[in-house]
Design a binder for these strands. Structure first.
Lengths: 187, 187
DNA sequence: AAGCGGGTAGATCGATCGGTCTATCTATGT
DNA sequence: ACATAGATAGACCGATCGATCTACCCGCTT
């Protein structure tokens, strides 16, 4: 039959760890993760080799989801590269306003994992490169003279918005960043 | 005589913790802090009441020092508000380029201390308010129509620069941010 | 000389950390 | 019917966490 079978331990661990690691930081205890996922201790080490492996996999799938979210956001904004880029900042405005938001999870992971050799850093680096390329592509389509440089600037605005959104609640950093993004785009 | 007496245990703990907490994160062990400061265990609890008290005091003194650094940077740039504001981004460029830099310590503290009630959050919040006011004052002197809003934007650029400087080594985010800062100022 | 406050050194506490282990249960395939 | 793979529950490991405690030592005042 193989029906009515809910998500397996690997899936449950990933989704539970995704939420718990973001809300509690990368230093959450293994016990808390297992309890939240309702998974046996052994399953964690079978599927991920350890806590670090789980962290890496959580970040990887989150990065895929977030990159897809950006793509979806841009596609929903039509074909004009200007609109597609500005839509990203509108979307970030929504993200920052979501309850429970408290900063960029990738920056949090990088800051929380002291060891520079931790494999999680590669994931976050790749994710940023991916977003940068996403932005640069639109800027190129826009005919921007320096798409790479402009993408750098948009990335600064994005990271700044996420940081300010986490640390200065009540303000609307996404709207302020969007204005600057318009200036970056308009050239 | 009371001479030739080096810094006391409180001073040593503060300076050692300042470096160690930034380089290792707020989760450094108490043992590591004591060892780095060459201080008896008891002294920590006598002077700061515990690890949390030490963290708070470290952040407070660091915030004072950083705010003073911003003021000094602006004063060294002369009296023109434009020059004074742009000098901040040049200074941030230096900071980001310093060996061992790996992000804004205040954001790292906020992200590392999960408990929203931790007293350290008040310190970081006050620091940001302080910087915001510093920027807004110059913008007002510049005759900017919306100094508060512009200060918000400069703060986004600053936080974004620090984040990108930490996560995308090799790039020069301060220079890119400075261009956008010029646009914010020029109105 | 005596007393005292501030400092050091280090044992010790219970809790928790990440990780390994054994034992048991269950569903599947043959 | 039986064997096997995958999952669970939970004991257990050494290490480390933050914090408390005792014992000692030094320099100062009186």
């Amino acid at each position: 039959m193989t029906v009515r079978t809910g998500p397996g331990p690997r899936e449950r661990l990933l989704t539970a760890a995704d939420q718990l690691i973001y809300s509690q930081g990368v230093n959450v205890g293994v016990d808390a993760l297992l309890k939240a996922a309702n998974v046996a201790r052994r399953s964690l080490y079978e599927h991920f080799g350890g806590k670090d492996g789980l962290i890496v996999e959580v970040l990887r799938s989150a990065a895929d989801a977030d990159a897809a979210d950006y793509r979806r956001t841009m596609d929903a904004a039509g074909h004009d590269p200007r609109e597609r880029l500005l839509a990203v900042f509108d979307r970030i405005g929504e993200i920052v306003a979501m309850p429970g938001f408290h900063g960029c999870r990738y920056l949090a992971a990088d800051l929380g994992l002291t060891d520079p050799g931790h494999p999680a850093h590669e994931i976050t680096r790749d994710y940023r490169r991916q977003v940068h390329e996403l932005l640069a592509r639109e800027l190129t389509a826009l005919g921007h003279p320096h798409p790479d440089h402009a993408a750098d600037q948009l990335l600064i605005l994005i990271d700044g918005t996420l940081a300010v959104g986490a640390t200065r609640p009540g303000t609307n950093p996404a709207a302020a960043a969007r204005e600057l993004a318009e200036h970056v785009i308009t050239l």
